[in-house]
């Protein structure tokens, strides 16, 4: 038996919005520790790694490890049937379930709805991701990162990210012309609008802007985003989900032939 409750459905809606455009389907791996999802997009250029720890749930019970193959568009349809303030409970009866239930309870308990979703068998590749000491780790406001990705996406398909001690620079060019946005490190590191850079050595990397824009769907989850970069390895873009977990996106760089 698996049962997990969250006091507010809003957080699960935001998590789903952050992954549903990148992934069609994914296995939700449920253990005593929590729920994990690791899946690549169809083209195997990017990867989503989601973790929701059990101690972040209002109630969490997982008697046996189980894997739930979820069609994310279907789950998004169901989540849209909840109000943001609803309590949500995810429930699966069997050890090897072929369906999962979502129960939404209004805050005054006067409205209770439940939706049953069929699960699917997903045979997906799992990647081993090594722990990496990155050359540059940048923390910046998530809304600023989203704005830059959206603005620069108009100019070209590729976005060049350069990071040095002075700051982080985003550049692109195309038929229309070129664009550059530079952010300097801020002095007050504690604020939500802070830009902080930890650097071992400067880095310049090129990425497909389209994927970065997909990642920014996670912006409502966190006021800050963390970018970790080293030359010629995938970019890590990380958003915290309150105190209960995080969503990590990895993106393979474009490399000169």
């Amino acid at each position: 038996m698996f049962e997990a409750s969250l006091a507010q459905s809003a957080i699960l809606k935001k998590v789903l919005d952050a992954i549903k455009d990148l992934l069609n389907e994914a296995n939700f791996e449920c253990t005593d520790d929590g729920i994990k999802v690791q899946a690549m997009d169809n083209s195997h250029v990017s990867l989503v790694s989601l973790e929701l720890r059990s101690d972040g749930f209002e109630k969490y019970r997982c008697d046996r490890n189980l894997s739930m193959g979820v069609n994310l568009a279907s789950m998004a349809k169901i989540m849209r049937c909840s109000s943001n303030s609803d309590k949500v409970t995810i429930k699966a009866q069997d050890d090897n379930p072929d369906k999962v239930s979502f129960i939404f309870e209004s805050s005054n308990q006067e409205r209770i709805s439940d939706y049953e979703m069929k699960l699917m068998d997903i045979d997906a590749d799992q990647l081993g991701i090594p722990d990496t000491e990155y050359s540059c780790v940048v923390k910046m406001p998530s809304a600023e990162f989203a704005r830059i990705c959206k603005d620069l996406n108009q100019f070209g398909e590729s976005l060049v990210i350069s990071c040095s001690k002075e700051g982080i620079k985003f550049s692109t060019s195309g038929d229309l012309g070129s664009a550059n946005v530079k952010l300097a490190q801020t002095t007050d590191a504690d604020k939500d609008d802070a830009v902080t850079i930890e650097m071992r050595s400067p880095v310049t990397l090129t990425f497909a802007c389209r994927y970065l824009n997909h990642f920014t769907k996670a912006t409502p989850l966190s006021s800050q985003v963390q970018l970790s970069m080293s030359d010629e390895i995938p970019l890590l873009v990380e958003y915290r989900i309150g105190d209960m977990g995080c969503i990590k996106y990895y993106l393979a760089p474009k490399i000169d032939d």
Partner: peptide, 14 residues
């Protein structure tokens, strides 16, 4: 000219 790599060229399959 740069070309897009896939993640499987950086991370190993489990």
């Amino acid at each position: 000219r740069s070309s897009q790599r896939t993640l499987t060229s950086f991370f190993s399959l489990n």
